[in-house]
Design a protein around this nucleic acid. Structure first.
Lengths: 116, 116
DNA sequence: CTAACAGTTAAAGTTAACTCTAAGTCAAGA
DNA sequence: TCTTGACTTAGAGTTAACTTTAACTGTTAG
């Protein structure tokens, strides 16, 4: 399938229809089209975009920053440098976060081993 | 030093005095004592507890669950099993989260490499 | 033809986790 | 003694990210 209703898209990306509409209202999904009755139609492009939004959000980027990134993305190769700079900075943040998670994992494991 | 004012503890654990009072109000720090003038005095025990709270919180546990854990902790070895079960479950969550972070890291890196 | 259904909008409500304000207390230094 | 500064409390305010409500509309099955 390559055209989805909001219910189908919701199922596909594991976000509620409320959330999808909310993301759109916040400007994160500028390319979702509507049919003659005003109903949203999601295409594969849209689902991929949502997938990347989930990736950025899941690694701690705020919706506000995700929107900034998306806005740069919309401006095409003119803003390629800025856009990639954002991603590279974010990459560092993720690496740091993984380190922190590993440290915390060790703390939790130590506590489990304590047996007191 | 082994006794800290709220300002010193705040500095030590990198949380604002507001947050420390808030955690206490929420029951996460049941053992903080006060001097004759009613001012909080943090001991090393308290700082360690805050350190572990930061660990749990930093790995996605809600303050509500952290309080549950702390409440079990207060009940000593009677609740050892339950307490450790919580930690073991949380350990799995952290492991899963690290996996997810690594997957997302790859996605971001792929996007960086795209050069479009 | 009509009832049920899946969608629409604008706007209000919710939740977690702080963060700040206002009014007050207490101890220490000039 | 007076003032300054670091604390105290209860309670209000903030922010992000949803989540729900109310009122409405267009599509589809009987």
């Amino acid at each position: 399938m390559s055209i989805y209703t909001i219910a189908q898209a919701s199922e596909e990306v594991e976000l509620t229809p409320y959330t999808l509409r909310y993301y759109e209202k916040e400007g994160l999904l500028p390319n979702v089209i509507k049919d003659s009755a005003g109903r949203r139609k999601y295409r594969d492009d849209d689902l991929q975009r949502i997938g990347f939004i989930k990736c950025l959000k899941g690694t701690g980027m705020s919706l506000k920053q995700i929107k900034e990134y998306g806005d740069l993305y919309e401006q095409g190769k003119a803003k390629f440098k800025e856009r990639n700079a954002m991603l590279e900075e974010h990459r560092e943040k993720i690496l740091q976060e993984i380190k922190t998670q590993k440290k915390y994992l060790k703390m939790v494991e130590a506590k489990i081993q304590m047996k007191i």
